[in-house]
Design a protein around this nucleic acid. Structure first.
Length: 244
DNA sequence: CCCCAGGGAATTC
DNA sequence: GAATTCCATGGG
């Protein structure tokens, strides 16, 4: 599917690299940032603390704006909670208070604690199944963690992705399963089926390509393809079917 | 006032 | 098994 790669190249040309969580190969190895990407507040990006921060960020931003999630990350860092060990020393209600800005704070406090217990019990790169077995980690959060914390070549699907590709004409809304989890896996399989065959621009690894693609979709959806689409000046407008 | 945000689980039909 | 409902803050 050539149009899938054209979507990427158009968005990449238009918005540039997003660098959601530092991509060493894009940032000259320093980690960040010339474009407003997330510099990391827990520790160095590819260290234990950096990976833990990505995992926390993935949970805290569930159905929540990144600015609200980031406030919670900053509050944790300010409190000296930069790893699973220290996090578990805080009772859930105290933790909930700290991450209040991220919304759903009681639930997310529990999620962070269960994730912390897991990381301590099973250090190192987690499998998708292990992540999914944790309460509060579903498909998207698990894949975000695998991609952005552990640099696994996983394509993250979210509501933006489905909305954009449906409107654009790559996906048929009526033929997608109703069930959330099944729909996620179907869409991911569809995308991977096509992307696995293509060659990646040589300045990007496959992992970085997927990381940038997802971040670009989010960026583009915020600017032009939200619940209410704003098609004026949309860089994809010429090829978009504008289905809603 | 409304709707939306880098979802997921529990509950109910 | 599919459709609600709940979780909840902050910005537009």
């Amino acid at each position: 599917m050539e149009s899938l790669t054209r979507v990427f190249s158009t968005l990449y040309r238009c918005y540039g690299p997003q660098g959601w969580w530092p991509l060493p190969s894009l940032a000259g190895g320093k980690g960040y940032d010339e474009r407003g990407s997330h510099p990391g507040v827990f520790g160095i990006p590819d260290g234990d603390e950096g990976r833990w921060e990505v995992m926390c960020g993935a949970v805290l931003t569930q159905n929540t704006s990144w600015t609200n999630a980031e406030r919670a990350l900053l509050a944790l860092a300010a409190e000296g909670i930069r790893g699973p060990r220290t996090l578990l020393k805080y009772p859930p209600e105290r933790l909930a208070e700290l991450i209040r800005s991220s919304g759903y704070y009681n639930q997310k406090a529990k999620k962070l604690r269960s994730m912390a217990s897991f990381v301590l019990a099973c250090p190192g790169s987690p499998t998708r199944e292990e992540l999914l077995s944790l309460k509060g980690i579903g498909n998207e959060t698990a894949d975000s963690i695998l991609l952005y914390a552990w640099h696994q070549p996983v394509f993250v699907v979210d509501a933006y992705t489905i909305r954009l590709f449906t409107r654009f004409g790559l996906l048929e809304a009526s033929s997608l399963p109703a069930q959330t989890s099944k729909r996620y896996n179907d869409v991911q399989f569809f995308i991977l089926k096509h992307l696995s065959k293509i060659s990646i621009p040589d300045d990007l690894s496959r992992t970085d390509y997927y990381a940038e693609f997802h971040a670009l979709i989010v960026r583009h959806a915020k600017l032009h393809c939200g619940a209410r689409p704003d098609c004026v000046y949309c860089p994809l407008e010429q090829r978009c079917l504008k289905r809603i």
